[in-house]
């Protein structure tokens, strides 16, 4: 299935590359020129289909390294779909395919047949909406990503566990029960275990798909604080329904509506002075 995906992406590559420049929205272009550092993720005029349904329409946006980028928008607008394209989790869906366009990470087309999807996912970690630690001990959850790479050196694993749990601000809470089941933790702790598990393999990018939607406000605050700290080391892309959350913890915000990117820009600017009417309507709560 993934090969057909790659093939179709590959076939269209040339023609798309030629038409990209002409298709870019002029306002977007001005936005791109504003960004100073070289973008780590470039999404180039992407069409995405579930079967015959077109879920994403010509999305083009860039994500800067060591920044938090938030995707916002009403349900069904395609923001999660776009996120899951970045580490090719959509490959798991039989009928899903990228119809046109390119995803580039550091300039490499990730849907190119020569790209190893396993390596891609090692470098692009993901945290899901529902906290989903494995039914194993806390320790085994954290080291899972290393074990599957064949790393079984006890000392190294111990180090990584401590580092990751400290990174996820969880070390003090669980250091005495590392070998208890991860399923015995609270919801917020479980979600931070998942974050720790993701950073244990030392990825460049972490994708977060509504990481706080199942958490209470206190746990949410902790995770948000964590996101803020993680920004120094990782590039974070976060999908959220929670406008305040996007406002609080992201540097850049992209607003999607009905499978289209309506607006992307500095979070402060989007929230205070959006250029598009739809963005303003959504942010002020007039729809969505």
């Amino acid at each position: 299935m993934s090969t057909t995906l790659e093939k179709s992406a590959n076939q269209k590559k040339k023609e798309e590359a030629m038409s990209i420049n002409s298709l870019i929205n002029p306002s977007m272009e001005s936005m791109m020129t504003e960004t100073k550092p070289k973008p780590i993720i470039e999404i180039d005029n992407v069409d995405f289909y579930y079967g015959a349904t077109k879920a994403l329409h010509g999305i083009t946006l860039n994500i800067e390294p060591k920044k938090v980028t938030a995707f916002i928008g009403p349900s069904g607008c395609g923001k999660s779909t776009l996120l899951r394209c970045i580490n090719r989790m959509n490959d798991l869906v039989d009928i899903a395919r990228v119809g046109a366009g390119q995803f580039r990470i550091s300039g490499v087309d990730i849907y190119h047949p020569s790209v190893d999807v396993i390596e891609l996912r090692k470098r692009v970690g993901m945290v899901f909406q529902k906290s989903n630690p494995f039914p194993k001990s806390i320790y085994e959850n954290i080291v899972y990503g290393l074990r599957i790479q064949g790393i079984n050196d006890k000392k190294r694993l111990d180090e990584v566990v401590e580092k990751s749990l400290r990174g996820a601000a969880l070390w003090d809470e669980v250091k005495d029960r590392l070998h208890d089941s991860a399923l015995g933790l609270s919801g917020g702790q479980m979600q931070r275990i998942c974050i720790a598990r993701a950073i244990a393999v030392d990825p460049e990018i972490i994708l977060m798909d509504e990481p706080c939607s199942a958490l209470d406000p206190i746990a949410t605050a902790k995770v948000e604080e964590l996101i803020h700290e993680l920004k120094t080391k990782f590039t974070i892309v976060i999908v959220t329904h929670n406008m305040q959350q996007a406002g609080r913890c992201s540097d850049t915000t992209a607003f999607f509506y009905l499978g289209k990117l309506i607006e992307i820009g500095n979070t402060e600017k989007i929230f205070t002075n959006p250029t598009q009417q739809q963005t303003e309507d959504y942010i002020t709560g007039r729809f969505g």
Partner: peptide
């Protein structure tokens, strides 16, 4: 969710089946 998060951590399909799915 188990399968998904295992794959998202860079596990191969076979590793996911063998280490996560069958034990569960």
């Amino acid at each position: 969710a188990y399968t998904e998060s295992s794959l998202a951590l860079g596990a191969t399909k076979f590793q996911t089946i063998w280490i996560i799915m069958i034990p569960s």
